[in-house]
Nucleic acid binder design. Sequence first.
DNA 1: TCTTGCTACGATATATCGTAACGACTATGC
DNA 2: GCATAGTCGTTACGATATATCGTAGCAAGA
Lengths: 158, 158
Amino acid sequence: MTDQAFEAHDHDACISGGVASVEQICADRGLQFTRTRQRVLEILLSEHKAMGAYEILDILRADGLGSQPPVAYRALEFLTKHGFAHRIERLNAFIACSHLEDPHAPVFLICRSCDRVVEAESDPSKGEIGRAAKQAGFVIERAVREAEGLCPGCSKPA
Amino acid sequence: MTDQAFEAHDHDACISGGVASVEQICADRGLQFTRTRQRVLEILLSEHKAMGAYEILDILRADGLGSQPPVAYRALEFLTKHGFAHRIERLNAFIACSHLEDPHAPVFLICRSCDRVVEAESDPSKGEIGRAAKQAGFVIERAVREAEGLCPGCSKPA
DNA sequence: TCTTGCTACGATATATCGTAACGACTATGC
DNA sequence: GCATAGTCGTTACGATATATCGTAGCAAGA
Ligand SMILES: [Zn+2]
Ligand SMILES: [Zn+2]
Ligand SMILES: [Zn+2]
Ligand SMILES: [Zn+2]
């Protein structure tokens, strides 16, 4: 059930599966999965790391898909708006979603050593944020939950 | 036990008490609570809202305490490093700490309507982030927990 | 056909947020 | 006093994000 980005896995399947799933979802919902949007998703899927908008833009530029900031930001807005990618506030950067199945409230684990990011999932209304909100009479619309630290591989001494 | 920023309270006491407490802590620890650092803390305490570095800088400039970005960022670094203020990642902005007593892991409730921010407190190793981390073998060093939504006042229809 | 509404795209400019680097001054401990 | 570390002021720059204006394509309906 938990995401495997910290462990060895068939990453080509992450990429091809991710693109195919989003393509299918867009078709179902009548969303336009344009060339630029698809390319940005591929870029985000290329590693389990968060990427900055300008880093993405550099690749788009090399691909001849646009060279100005709005090109990247529009594609990222589309992807995040529809849940195909997430923004990592701590890093001012973006990552492909790894729980495409259904609406979800992600929790991110960010390794400060190898920069890999894992997306876990859990209901924010439970847990400590939900408790604090309830006590204050606060209505949560969006929750940012990002932990920074060391992944299993990077915390091993050797 | 919970912070009162969403409710009516004696806010002058927040300011004077906050400054006095930090002054005392700095004296105890041999930290230099300089004029600029004190002024930035006062600015952060002036409202229960997060403030951007440049917004703070504008005030410092008007006070004749410096006019260039590093002036504000250095004071903010000092305040956040020693736990007298916190950075709100979601807003790229800063807020005064309201739990000066001891080391703590804050949770922030951010009202998108009135911009007020409340700092609550709870152990991140418990709750859903801790659970996700444990399952992945991830060692948490720092956790960002920020909820965005509506405060009690702003969610009331009238 | 013509118009209207909508979505996406291109391009320029600007706003906002954050640091590197350097030299001068100042508090502190010896 | 002197050495040292900490602080400060400034210049310049880098990184991130949005505003604004204009255009192209497509589909629905008059
Ligand atoms: Zn993978
Ligand atoms: Zn790692
Ligand atoms: Zn107050
Ligand atoms: Zn409010």
